[in-house]
């Protein structure tokens, strides 16, 4: 049984807390998370699954299993990939309702809010929207 979204968010916040003001440490950790992101199945790296940001591309695949939504993803930029890894850790394996309702406030708390600005060229905002949309679509099937 996967723990609920707030628990995972708390876990991530404390994981980043140890870096304090050391943004370099935070980024190094984020980059490491990007490296460990389990890759999306190459079969799923199709045009339909691509979320075009201005500069970095993100692929997202969503599946429904036993009432839960599972995401796999990849990105061509490693910092973006780190952010994607965080989203997946929080959202994958949750129910559609939880996914749709969450505000992902942990992003701000760990100091990466700037990555979610809509003017940002990394496609993350579009990715989150896509995750929520996919969750709705899959749960209505």
């Amino acid at each position: 049984m996967k723990s609920d979204i707030t628990d995972i968010e708390e876990e991530i916040i404390s994981e980043f807390e140890i870096f304090g003001d050391d943004w370099e440490g935070k980024y190094e950790h984020l980059i490491d998370l990007g490296r460990t992101l389990p890759l999306i199945n190459e079969k799923c790296k199709i045009e339909e699954n691509i979320i075009k940001g201005c500069q970095s591309r993100v692929w997202l695949n969503s599946e429904l299993k036993d009432g839960k939504i599972y995401f796999t993803a990849d990105a061509d930029a490693i910092i973006t990939k780190g952010m994607v890894a965080l989203m997946i850790r929080v959202l994958s394996g949750q129910t559609a309702k939880e996914i749709i309702d969450t505000k992902l406030e942990f992003i701000d708390k760990i100091g990466f809010k700037e990555h979610l600005s809509p003017t940002r060229a990394n496609g993350l905002v579009s990715m989150i929207n896509r995750m929520k949309l996919d969750a709705i679509k899959l749960s209505e099937k």
């Binding site: 943004w23 500069q55 970095s56 061509d76 930029a77 910092i79 973006t80 060229a121 990394n122």
Partner: peptide, 21 residues
């Protein structure tokens, strides 16, 4: 082997404005 976006993001953290893309 690195995406320009990553390099640009880190340089920005150091106050350096370069263009990427």
């Amino acid at each position: 082997n690195q995406h320009p976006f990553d390099v640009g993001t880190l340089l920005d953290k150091y106050g350096i404005a370069v263009r990427t893309g």
